[in-house]
Simulated assay, not measured.
Amino acid sequence: MQLKHIILGAIIGTSLSACGATSKKMPEEAPKNKLTMNIPSWVLNPVVEDGIAATDCVKFSGNMSIDQKMASANARLALAQQIEIKVEGLDKTYASRVDSNDEMTTGTNFSSVSKQLTQQRLNGSRVIKSDIVDIGGQNHFCAMMTLSPTATKELFDAIMEQSKRNINPQDERFLYQEFKAAKAQEELDVTIKKLTN
């Protein structure tokens, strides 16, 4: 009889420890992404209506003045790269639009005239938001640089004019919408991923 109790106790004990082990082995639901959970949306996805925006963050050194200058300079560079990619998108969009209409046009491509114009226009860019942000448990100083809607339109108009292309008003409106579109931001994200891998 005692042997039965010992065997029964061993079986129950083994079953319970197996259940306990099983529950411990089950993975806990991991948070979506600990690194990006508390980062403000303006840092992750900088947007300004009818304009162009870019954000950059530098590790916080404790010297706000130096960190602000670094983050602003990096954000300005990111803004220039974003414009360059948007202009390359203009070239592709314009070429496919012309091809589909069987038109022949002459002129300089938009990319070749944009670099100097971009540098001139970036003088009008400004930081509209900055803050110390916790990224991965470390403080970073982040700055969002924008090119205002007016400056963005002026840049687009200057690129169109310098390209010496005859573009009808409807196509020009379409190209401007494409210039500001999220597609260019997506292409920028792909380019950045390639550079960082």
Rank of each mutant, 00 (worst) to 15 (best):
T105F: 09
S65Y: 07
Q170H: 05
K115D: 11
V127T: 11
A95S: 14
S130Q: 14
T146L: 10
I128Q: 05
K24E: 05
T152P: 05
I7E: 13
A80K: 03
L117D: 00
S100N: 14
L117R: 00
P31Y: 03
L79D: 00
P27R: 01
L44P: 00
T14E: 09
S96C: 02
N33C: 11
T108F: 06
I7L: 15
K32W: 13
D102F: 13
K194F: 05
V47Y: 11
A182N: 13
A158M: 13
A182F: 13
T36P: 04
T152A: 08
R165M: 09
M70H: 07
D134C: 02
P40V: 03
T93K: 07
D50P: 06
Y94F: 15
G124E: 13
K69G: 05
D67E: 06
L155V: 02
E172I: 03
N45L: 06
E172L: 08
T146F: 02
G9H: 14
R173A: 11
W42C: 03
T14I: 15
Q116V: 12
G89E: 10
R165Y: 03
Q162T: 07
Q177V: 02
T22V: 14
H140C: 11
T152C: 04
A151C: 07
Q162M: 07
K164L: 09
E88R: 14
Q82S: 12
L77V: 08
L16Y: 01
I66P: 01
S130A: 12
M104K: 12
Y94N: 13
Q82K: 15
Q138H: 04
M37P: 00
A21Y: 10
T106D: 06
I135E: 00
S125K: 08
G137Q: 11
M70E: 12
N33P: 12
L147N: 02
K4F: 11
I85M: 07
P149L: 03
N63V: 09
S163G: 10
F156T: 02
N63Q: 06
D157I: 04
L77S: 09
N63T: 06
R76T: 11
G107E: 07
N45R: 05
V58Q: 08
K69C: 01
K24G: 08
I135A: 01
R126W: 02
K193C: 00
